[in-house]
Design a protein around this nucleic acid. Sequence first.
DNA 1: GTACATAGTGACCGAATGGATACCATTGCG
DNA 2: CGCAATGGTATCCATTCGGTCACTATGTAC
Lengths: 134, 134
Amino acid sequence: MREKTERIVREWGDACDAEISIAVLGGAWKPSILSLLDEHDVLRFGELSRLLDEPTARVLTRQLRELEDDGLLIRTVYRQVPPKVEYRLSDLGRGSMPLVDALTRWGADYAAHQRRELARLDAHAEDLGAVVAG
Amino acid sequence: MREKTERIVREWGDACDAEISIAVLGGAWKPSILSLLDEHDVLRFGELSRLLDEPTARVLTRQLRELEDDGLLIRTVYRQVPPKVEYRLSDLGRGSMPLVDALTRWGADYAAHQRRELARLDAHAEDLGAVVAG
DNA sequence: GTACATAGTGACCGAATGGATACCATTGCG
DNA sequence: CGCAATGGTATCCATTCGGTCACTATGTAC
C-alpha cells in the first residue's frame, strides 16, 4: 500500500470519505487507465501508453504503481527479453468502475453545461462589441 | 468561471471527463462543503468554518471562491457591519450531490476494505514476530 | 476611545505532482 | 558487431496546493 493511502487508512478515522476516493482515483491518467483495463481486460505497458496519449514513461509508470499499491490493479511481470509486463484490474479495481463511470458522466455533463454558458457569455460580449462599434 | 475550469472547457475537447469532475470536486474540504450546504440549505462563512474542522480562513475562502467560480454555489453578501455572507448550492451544485455521495460511499467502503487488509497484514507480522522471538 | 465581531486578504512556505530529458539492461537478429 | 524492442529509472524543473501568520475594514457597544 503506498504511503499516502496507508496514511489515509491508518490516520483518518472517519471524516472526508469522498476525499479518499479522490486521493485514489485523482491522478493524471488514472480514470482513463482504469476504463481501458476494464474494456480490454489485460494490457501491456506499451499498449496502455499508445491507447492513452503517450504520456512519458516516467509518468505512466508512476500512475500504474500507485494504482497497484492502492490495490486497484494487478501487475504481472514475465521474466523474458524483451520484457513483458501485463496490467489488469483487481476486484477492487472492477468495483471502482461504477464510480469512475459516474465521474465521467458528470464531468461530461458539467463541461457541456459550462460550454453552453461560455458561448452565451461570448455571444453577449459580441453584442456589446457591436453596440460599442456601432 | 475560474481559470482552471475555463481552460478545461475551452481546451479539452472531449477526453478525460472524469478528470473534469475531479478538478471541480477535488479540493480540500470541497465535498464536505457541498454536503453541508445540501444539508443546511444556507450557511454563513463562520457557520461553515465551525461545522468543518475550523480550517484557516484563507483556505476556506479559497475553496468557497473556487466552488463559486465553478458555478456550484452562490455567495450572497449583505452589506452591513459586522459583515454577513451566505453560501448556498446552485442548481449545478445540487446536481453534483449524487456524485459526491457516490464518492463518499466508495471512499468509505475502500477505507474499510483496506483497514481489514491492514489488520490482516499486521496480525501476520505479529505471527512472524512470535516465530522469530520463539 | 477602545474592544469586539465578521469575513475576509497578502505574503510566504514546504511538499507533492506532472512532465521533460537522458539513460539503462537484456537478448535475439542480421 | 551493432541495432532494435520493451519496460522501465534517475535527475531535474516549474507549478500548484494546502496551510501558517500577520493584518484589515467598520459599525456598534461599553
